[in-house]
Computed example of a mutant assay.
Amino acid sequence: MWKLAFKRLCRPLRFLIILGGLSDQAEAQSLVKRLVDHFLNDTTSAARPHVSFYPTLGYAPETSFEFGLSALYLYHARNDTLHNRLSEIQAFSFFTLRGQYGINLDHAIYGDNDRWYFLGRGRIQRFPLLYHGIGPHAESSHPATVDAFSIQFRERAMRRLRPNLFGGLEVDFQQLSRIDFQQPDGHAHDLPIGSQGTSNLGLGLGLIYDSRPNALNPRKGFFAEIAYLNYGQSRSQSLSFNSLFADVRMYHTLRPNQVLAWQVYSNLMTGDVPFNQLALLGGENTMRGYYMGRYRDKFYSAAQVEYRWLPLTFSRRFGAVVFAAVGTVAPSLSQFQLDHLLPTAGTGVRYLLFKKKDVFLRADMGITREGIGFYILTGEAF
C-alpha cells in the first residue's frame, strides 16, 4: 500500500480571491511573497513551531482509490533549539471509494530538558487486511481478505533516568471487531486464532536509549528500545500471551550531507496470540517492498542498512537513498532458520520540506522477489 503525499497545499483559488480584493499592487506582491515563503521556503525561525496540512492520494487493489488529509506539527519544548530536541506529531485521515476509512496518529514528544519522553501511535480504521497464512512458508497467491473494524493504541510514557536514557510504562491496546473473513475461491485458509474478533490490553515496562537530535531525520546518534508486555485474557476469548521486542538503530555522519544508518529489530511472542497481533513482516519502515503482514508468526527478526544523501551535492532540496534488508518469521526463536531469510532492496528520493528543521519528504521503492512496493511519507523510515 502506498500513499502519495502532494506538496503542501497552496490553495491557489483562495489566494486569487484575496489578491483580487487588494487595490495596491505592492501589497499584493508582499502577500504573495509571504505565502510563498511560508509554504515553500520555510523562512520562519527554527525555534518557532511549524504546522502544515497537505492532501494525500493512494491506490491499492483492496481499497481502490484512497483520499486523505495529513497534518504535521513540529516544535521544540519552550522553543529552545539548543537544549531541547525536535518533537513531532503527525495525523492522517482517509477514506476510499470502497467505503473504508481511518484516522492515524503518530508522535514523538520530548519534554523540556528531556525530563519526559512520549512515543506512540494510534489507529482507528475500517480497513481490509490481507491474510496469507502463518509462518515463513505462507503462499503469496490466494490470500484471504479480512474486512474488519480495528482500534490500535500504543504508548510509551518514559521518564529520564540518565542523559539519553529513559524508562517507564508501555501500553498496547488492540481491538478487532465486525470481522468478515473472506476466503479465496478454492483455497480456504484454516481460521486462525482471533478470526472471530479480539480485544486485548498489554501492559509492561520498557527502556529507551535515544541520543538522536532529530527523530524524523537522524544524522547521528544511537537509538535502542527493549520492552516486555503481558496481555491478559481478552473479552471475547480466553487468550493470554506475552511480547518481548528489541529495536536497535545507529546513525553515522560520514560527510556533511551523507549518513549511513542501520537497524536490527526482533519481536518474540509466546502464548495464544491472535493473528492480527502476531509479529508482522513488511510495511513502509522495515522490509520495504513486502505488504505489512505478508509473513506473520510468533517470532520476527530483520536487519536493514541505508545510505542517505541529504541533500545531493548539486541540489539544495533533493536527496536520495539506497537501502537493503533481510528478515524472516518463525514459530519460535529455536525454529529460526537462516535459509528462510527474505531479501529486499531499493532506492528512494527525498525533498526537503522544512529547511530550518531538517525534515524531508520521502518516496521509496522496495523491490522483493514478489514485486515492488511504493511509499511516500514524511520523515525517514527509521
Rank of each mutant, 00 (worst) to 15 (best):
W2T: 11
F6E: 08
K7C: 01
P12Y: 13
A28H: 08
K33L: 12
F39K: 13
L40R: 09
A47H: 03
R48V: 09
S52H: 10
T56P: 02
T63A: 04
L72D: 10
L82Q: 11
L97M: 14
L97A: 14
A108W: 02
D112F: 03
D112V: 10
N113Q: 11
H137Q: 14
P143N: 11
E155Y: 14
N164M: 01
G167F: 10
G167S: 06
F173H: 15
D180R: 13
D180A: 12
P184E: 12
G197S: 13
S199I: 05
L203P: 01
L203I: 14
S211M: 04
P213M: 00
A227W: 01
D247I: 07
Y251Q: 05
H252M: 05
T253H: 03
V259H: 05
A261P: 03
N267F: 01
G271S: 06
V273D: 08
Q277A: 08
A279N: 04
M292T: 11
R294F: 12
Y295Q: 07
R296I: 11
S301L: 11
E306L: 03
E306A: 05
W309N: 03
L312M: 13
F314G: 00
S315D: 14
V322P: 02
V322Y: 07
V322S: 13
A324L: 07
G327W: 04
Q335C: 00
L338A: 11
D339T: 08
L342G: 01
L342D: 04
P343Y: 08
T368D: 00
E370W: 01
I372E: 09
